[in-house]
Amino acid sequence: MRAGVIVFPGSNCDRDVIIALKTISNFKPKILWHKETEIPNLDLVVVPGGFSFGDYLRCGAIAAKSPIINSLKDHASRGGSVLGICNGFQILIETKLLPGTLITNKNLNFVCKDISLITQKTRPSPFTNGLTPGDKVNFPIAHNDGNYFCDDELTKKLHNEGQIAFKYSPNDNPNGSVDNIAGVLSENGRILGMMPHPERAIENFHSSQDGKLFFNGLIKHLLG
């Protein structure tokens, strides 16, 4: 499997993603510095979490203008898979590869805890390959601006087109996201942005190992 992880100044989950992918697939992902202008032919590119460019202006806004972003868009238009986690999700939103926007958490707190997510019935997607709709998975979250916001029209479209991959439980929405949305897919299902961190739910010393389910399904799909 050919995977790459983009690193920006301020990324801090890049190594966790690299270790998670290597542990599960046995393939070491390529590290892609944000100043590179060409992404080689890869199956998967991960935009990791962190605080790229210090979250200046708006979270992900500066990173979304980095030199590598044009080739990320090319990779996406070739049908390549893209996974954006946390700040990576914010960056994909700012690049407009994913719809809607992410605003400051409703309660103004930085939330850092384990959270239960409900897997949704989606359009065909490599990212929901290993999961059954209705399944609950536990991943950690750690963010200040994870409040997914979009108008009613877009919410309806996301539902109708099966573009919502994960939701928070209605009674445990940590950030005020519209319709408890925690993860959103692109129209072709090949781009996923999510606030929770599956790469932090792998090892025995992590509080959950549900990330294995997620990455196993993804890697199986990409290798298949």
Partner: peptide, 8 residues
């Protein structure tokens, strides 16, 4: 291009 997120 950069300074404003016109969605919000």
């Amino acid at each position: 291009k950069l300074l404003v997120n016109t969605i919000i």
